[in-house]
Structures are given as structure tokens and as C-alpha cells.
């Protein structure tokens, strides 16, 4: 049985359709990535799946309960954590865990056992009496996740859990997500860090309330970027991008840090004569800006995401 089964879910606010007839399913124990631009309808969908917002039409079964008919049972069987709200800063670590344990109805031995588990996974053993507001964001996020799954829910929803978190803490947080998923809990996660989305078993991408792509990271790359992708490392990236946009070999072009990713209109082998000609043309185009390095690369999910969303603008 699937952990989540969404059928024709729709939410309208007045005349505005926030979520438009989306259907998908999430398998048990999967790490499932839910991606989309700001305003695409992600938060609205999560609120519905958590049983706190009623759909206009359609339905979803979450852990076997209908979100429209039995939202209270849905709430009891899930965990939820977001970057924005998770813990009380003016309570100690111990008090926060007691509070969440209490909400989830944990008592006595079970509470004790789950609390020590949460402390262990967040790396806060022997720091029970620390005021939560004085913890660094990395610790706070891991503690918040621990608190959200204290009652061992079958599904946990993580809404941008790593927003604004530095590269090292983000990596530690994802180690924890893997551990939780391996223990059998389904993880439903949203993120704007596309390197994190690569860790998901499956992904769906929504735009303007409509589902536009779904699959494993590998499937998405194969389906949406089968053509050759070049990485161009040079100075003045934005000026070079402007020059590349109108060229006949360009399918799409985006800035990536100090380099440019250029998706070509066809697929070439590295030794292809036509590819050599394109590389020469790029060098001519960039003109006199110093060293220009051009290489074929394997596209990442961020390439897929940009390609899919920029095409729609």
C-alpha cells in the first residue's frame, strides 16, 4: 500500500486556483521530493496533505486516512517540521521534547526512550538543559526533526527544512533524513537546494498549481535533458549569457556560480566535428575576456529544474 495517494487534488481561493487537479502517489519508506518555484502551490498542497486545509475538490489518502473525511486521524499519524516554525526558543531542549512528546501522547517509559533517541540523533546528549534559542541553527534543525518524529509517525512532512542553513549543516541534516527513511518512515520534503533533491528516490515538480514532471532524478534528467550540456567557465558570466541566448545552437543557458551551463539543441559525442565548431564559435563570441574553459558535463537536477521552468515563462 502506498503511503500517500493523491487524486485530482484541487484548491481554489476565490477565483484563484492554487492547486490544479494534481495526482501522484508516494511509496512507503520513500524520500519523496516536492519541488516548484515560489508561489507554485507547494505550501497549499502540504497544508492539505497534513489535514489542516480542506481541498476544494479531489482527495488524498495519507497513511490510509482521507484528508477530506478524516483530517483528525491524518494529523495524528504524521509528523511535520518547517524551517519557519519548529521549537520554542525560550524552553530548554528537555522542555521542548516534553512538550512535543505530550502533544503526541507519549508517556512514562516510552517518552523517556523517545526523548533519549531524539537527543542522540540531534547530537544534544548532555545538553538537555540548554535554552533552545542559544543553539546554532544546525542543532536546532536536527532537534526539530527529532521532535517531529518522536511518536514514530509513518510519514513526516519537511517544508524547506534547510532554508538558510550553511553547507555543512545541510549535509548533516540529510544524513539524518536518510537514517529516518531507513527506519521505514516516509519522508515528504520540499527544498530549493537542488543538490538535496538528488537524494530523493522520486520527485515531482509543480508550476502554477499544475504537475509538470515526475520521476526519479535519473529519469528526469534523461527525459528532459538528453542533449549535450556544456559548462563554460569564464569572466563576465552575465554578459556572455546575453551573447549565447540568440545563438542557433542554444536550447537554454543559465548561470551556475562562476560558470555557465549551456544546453545544446542536439546530442554530440565528445569527438564530434560539429561540437568542435560550436566550441570555436563560443570562443569567438566571448571575445577578449581572458581564459575560457569549455567542457561537456553530466547535467544536474538544477539544470533540469531551470530548463523546465524557464521554458514556461
Amino acid at each position: 500500500m502506498n503511503s500517500i495517494e493523491v487524486s485530482n487534488l484541487t484548491k481554489k481561493f476565490g477565483s484563484f486556483t492554487s492547486v490544479n487537479d494534481i495526482s501522484f502517489s508516494v511509496g512507503k519508506g520513500e524520500i519523496f521530493g516536492f519541488l516548484g518555484a515560489n508561489g507554485a502551490g507547494k505550501s497549499t498542497t502540504i497544508k492539505m496533505l497534513c489535514g489542516i486545509l480542506e481541498p476544494t475538490s479531489g482527495d488524498a489518502m495519507v497513511s490510509g486516512f482521507s484528508i477530506s473525511k478524516d483530517p483528525e486521524s491524518v494529523k495524528r499519524n504524521i509528523g511535520y517540521m518547517s524551517q519557519k516554525f519548529s521549537l520554542y526558543g525560550d524552553l530548554t531542549v528537555n522542555e521542548n521534547l516534553n512538550f512535543f512528546g505530550g502533544i503526541y501522547g507519549l508517556k512514562n517509559e516510552r517518552l523517556k526512550e523517545r526523548k533519549s533517541w531524539a537527543l542522540k540523533i540531534s547530537g544534544l546528549e548532555n545538553k538537555e538543559n540548554t535554552l533552545t534559542s542559544t543553539l546554532s541553527v544546525g542543532y536546532k534543525q536536527r532537534l526539530a526533526l527529532g521532535a517531529a518524529v518522536m511518536h514514530e509517525p509513518k510519514i513526516v512532512f519537511l517544508d524547506e527544512p534547510t532554508g538558510g542553513v550553511d553547507p555543512i549543516s545541510r549535509r548533516k541534516f540529510w544524513d539524518l533524513i536518510h537514517d529516518i527513511s531507513e527506519s521505514g518512515t516516509t519522508v515528504f520534503v520540499t527544498t530549493h537546494y537542488l543538490d538535496e533533491a538528488e537524494f530523493c528516490n522520486r520527485i515531482i515538480l509543480i508550476n502554477a498549481g499544475i504537475l509538470i514532471a515526475s520521476g526519479s532524478p535519473a529519469e528526469l534528467k534523461k527525459e528532459y535533458i538528453d542533449n549535450t550540456v556544456l559548462e563554460i567557465t569564464c569572466r563576465e558570466t552575465f554578459a556572455v549569457i546575453e551573447k549565447l541566448i540568440p545563438e542557433d545552437f542554444t536550447q537554454s543557458v543559465s548561470a551556475f556560480g562562476n560558470s555557465i551551463h549551456l544546453i545544446l539543441k542536439s546530442k554530440f559525442s565528445p569527438q564530434d566535428e560539429e561540437l568542435k565548431i560550436i566550441k570555436e564559435r563560443i570562443r569567438k563570441l566571448t571575445g577578449d575576456i581572458g581564459e575560457v574553459k569549455i567542457e561537456i558535463i553530466v547535467p544536474s537536477l538544477e539544470d533540469v529544474f531551470l530548463n523546465l521552468l524557464e521554458k514556461r515563462e
Binding site: N38, Q83, G163, H192, F238, F305, L306, L309, E313
Partner: peptide, 20 residues
């Protein structure tokens, strides 16, 4: 102060073009 935290990859790039 962290103007692009919580902003999607497409909008982040747009914000950067505006800044430059």
C-alpha cells in the same frame, strides 16, 4: 541580509541579474 534564502533557483538568478 540573505535576500535569497527561501527563494527558488529561477527567481534567485533573476534577483542576481537585477543586483548586477
Amino acid at each position: 541580509d540573505e535576500p535569497t534564502t527561501g527563494v527558488d533557483p529561477v527567481s534567485r538568478r533573476e534577483f542576481w541579474i537585477i543586483l548586477s
